[in-house]
Amino acid sequence: MTRGRFAPGDQVLVRDEDPPHHHRTPWYIKGRIGKVDAVYDPWPNPEEMAFGKTNGPKIPVYRVEFDQKDLWDTYQGPKRDRLVIDIFEHWLEPVERSQQ
């Protein structure tokens, strides 16, 4: 398996950006901190595929885990509830210890 930048258990910050083109990062996790749950093989970048560029570099994808209560102020449910979502590596940044 190709090694990505992050490993399971790593804390990651989802970039809070809104590029005008097709991208697969929904608004509700932008700017949020999660934890890498699983590392997947690299996949073609949908942001390039959307414009017909099919031969660009593949990008590692991570299943990232978030606490539901961190995502939604109004979340009704126990603290143990989680959400996992697949995020392409270029949307993730490492979290410094001081930010945790």
Binding site: Y40, P78, R80, L83, V84, D86, I87
Partner: peptide
């Protein structure tokens, strides 16, 4: 039940 974690999976990539 509240004793079980509900884990939502949002499939945003090719998986």
């Amino acid at each position: 039940g509240e004793e079980r974690e509900v884990r939502v999976v949002d499939s945003t990539a090719e998986l």
